[in-house]
């Protein structure tokens, strides 16, 4: 066995902990490095942004937050930026969380965005004055109920069927913004931000049964799975993973955690590609050496 083979064997049998260590160093260094990267906007993300941006003040967006802390990294930025866009433009929001861990995610997002909306900000050259976003007037959080399929079907008849009261125990009829709101007919669109298979329920039992415009925001792992629904017109817009969140932040001119994360992604991906190339060179050279030695 020659020396080259030893090197290639070593390349292929490198302790995986060196890979982890290098990845940690690269990610931390890229996070603290003061630079930014351009983010190209894809049409499926732009369609969600344009849809919400062209809604008349007072319209209602239904936001379905179906994720848990494990998917928070990719989906929280989407929720934040979408909620802020709605509240700044005086668009009202009805929210459900059909994942048991979803209510805490939704509450956390509402608290932070409500705080953020108190400050004056300028987006696309237009100044938005800070204002108090009020629970029950600007948004209504219905909370969690088990069996998402049945809840989605029930809300198609009346929101009051699965949710006689909101998450905080107030009867729906006593909530000012819910007066005259019966079902999906009164909402402009449904945006499902999800890290679970709940998305399939929204497609089949929600959009398929009631025909409302549906947009999705999903984790990267689910990313490739839902593109066919875009092609078939069952969803009008789509945000996949951290990249989708960063694109939406760029569109809204509201750079947040996703935009910062993308520069780290860039270098982490470079490193992973480098290791894939090294591994493949090792594999093929080892195979070639064995062939040459007649083994």
């Amino acid at each position: 066995m020659n020396q080259n083979t030893n090197i290639f064997n070593k390349m292929m049998s490198m302790d995986r902990r060196w890979v982890f260590l290098l990845l940690i160093i690269v990610c931390v260094a890229a996070y603290f490095a003061p630079f930014s990267i351009p983010i190209l906007i894809e049409p499926e993300v732009e369609r969600v942004y344009n849809f919400v941006d062209t809604l008349a003040p007072g319209s209602i967006v239904f936001l379905a937050i179906d994720y848990d802390p494990a998917s928070l990294a990719e989906l929280h930025p989407m929720t934040y930026v979408l909620l802020e866009q709605c509240f700044r433009r005086n668009i009202r929001v009805i929210c459900t969380a059909l994942h048991p861990n979803g209510p805490s995610m939704a509450e956390n997002a509402f608290l932070e965005v409500v705080d953020s909306c108190k400050v004056d900000k300028t987006y696309h050259g237009k100044q938005f004055m800070g204002r108090e976003v009020v629970n029950g007037i600007d948004y209504c959080f219905l909370g969690y109920k088990p069996y998402p399929a049945l809840v989605i079907l029930g809300m198609g008849t009346n929101f009051r069927l699965p949710f006689p009261a909101d998450y905080y125990g107030r009867p729906i009829d006593s909530i000012p913004m819910m007066k005259g709101i019966q079902n999906y007919d009164q909402v402009a669109c449904v945006v499902n931000i999800s890290g679970t298979s709940g998305t399939e329920y929204w497609i089949s039992y929600g959009q398929g049964r009631f025909g409302f415009p549906l947009a999705l925001g999903v984790t990267g792992v689910m990313g490739a799975e839902y593109y066919p629904y875009l092609n078939s017109g069952q969803i009008f817009g789509y945000m996949a993973g951290m990249l989708g969140a960063a694109q939406y932040e760029k569109l809204a001119e509201n750079d947040g955690k996703a935009v910062v994360a993308m520069k780290v992604q860039l270098f982490a991906h470079f490193l992973i590609i480098f290791f894939i190339i090294i591994g493949n060179i090792g594999f093929f050279m080892d195979k070639f050496s064995k062939k040459r030695e007649g083994r």
Binding site: G220, A224, M242, A261, Q265, A268
Partner: peptide
């Protein structure tokens, strides 16, 4: 190609989890 796209997106998702932890810690 389909599996490759899924794998790429999964890598992005896993790195995202780590980045979020860095952001939290910092």
């Amino acid at each position: 190609i389909g599996f490759g796209a899924s794998f790429g997106l999964t890598v992005m998702a896993r790195i995202s989890l780590f980045i979020q932890r860095i952001q939290f810690m910092h």
